[in-house]
């Protein structure tokens, strides 16, 4: 199955990527290729650069690429603005979704969805048509319609915020979704809802990168590849068994790989 996947062009190619913030190097030569239909998991200790990698792919302005680059659907996107990346199909699910007081969730979702639809040459949706669409997508994450009338993420519980992220993913229909610790702060039921939502949205044409600390999300969504990061580098890549082994042996076990490299 994997060889069949590889026949297609990659969605995302991170090539020997080094990046810094405030002159402090964070990523030190990361390479990662995601093909359509693939699910990649990235694991590693806190501070190893997992979230930074996700933010740099999404175009966070606080980071500078010092070497290497990122290709999305064959095009170098190093100089693209975050909104251009999002419109073209890159989605970042935030570890800590941001609260935006005073901005209605419904309006925020509609403006975002229309920005993506415009890029795809699809007709932009007015409030009524959008309400129809969003009603259908709310089902995926089992969210109540009342969340739409509240301010973006304001007063949402941890689980509701994460479900709101997946709702956004469902509306934006990205080519690649990078989900940064989407499982953190979720109880078992919420984790299942979120995981089932991710599975429903993903397809043979999309790629997913799951950044996680725990096996429990990977029990729900089985990755094709597991990468272990340490000190701004990917130090080991394997299949889903690597995550199981990591769960058993802990990150100390991966220190040996650093010594070897």
């Amino acid at each position: 199955m994997q060889s069949k996947m590889k026949e297609s062009e990659p969605i995302l190619e991170v090539e020997n990527l080094s990046a810094s913030t405030d002159n402090l190097p964070i990523l030190k030569g990361v390479s990662l290729t995601v093909h359509p239909g693939e699910i990649h998991a990235i694991m590693g200790r806190n501070g190893c650069g997992k979230s930074t990698l996700s933010k740099i792919i999404a175009g966070h302005p606080s980071y500078n690429i010092t070497n290497g680059g990122i290709k999305f659907l064959g095009e170098n996107i190093n100089s693209l603005e975050p909104e251009e990346r999002a419109q073209s199909g890159i989605f970042l699910g935030f570890q800590y979704p941001i609260e935006i007081p005073g901005v209605s969730n419904l309006e925020f979702l509609r403006v975002s969805t229309n920005a993506r639809r415009k890029f795809l040459n699809k007709e932009e949706l007015d409030t009524f048509d959008f309400e129809e669409l969003v009603k259908e997508k709310l089902e995926i994450v089992k969210m109540d319609h009342a969340f739409l009338s509240r301010s973006v993420n304001q007063g949402f519980s941890g689980g509701e915020k994460k479900r709101n992220e997946i709702l956004q993913m469902a509306l934006l229909e990205p080519k690649i979704a990078i989900l940064d610790e989407t499982d953190s702060g979720l109880d078992i039921d919420a984790l299942r809802i979120v995981a089932s939502g991710i599975k429903k949205i993903s397809s043979a044409q999309t790629g997913i990168i799951l950044i996680t600390h725990y096996q429990r999300l990977l029990d729900e969504i089985k990755p094709n590849y597991v990468h272990v990061m340490s000190d701004g580098q990917i130090i080991k890549t394997g299949d889903s068994d690597l995550a199981l082994e990591l769960e058993k042996k802990g990150y100390e076990w991966t220190d040996n790989f650093i010594k070897e490299t």
Binding site: G59, E83, A86, F94, P97, I98, S112, A115
Partner: peptide
């Protein structure tokens, strides 16, 4: 907040307006 909105495809001027 600005980056969050931009990461959803909303342009910087639109995000600032919101």
């Amino acid at each position: 907040e600005l980056f969050y909105m931009r990461s959803r495809g909303i342009t910087l001027p639109e995000a600032s307006k919101l």
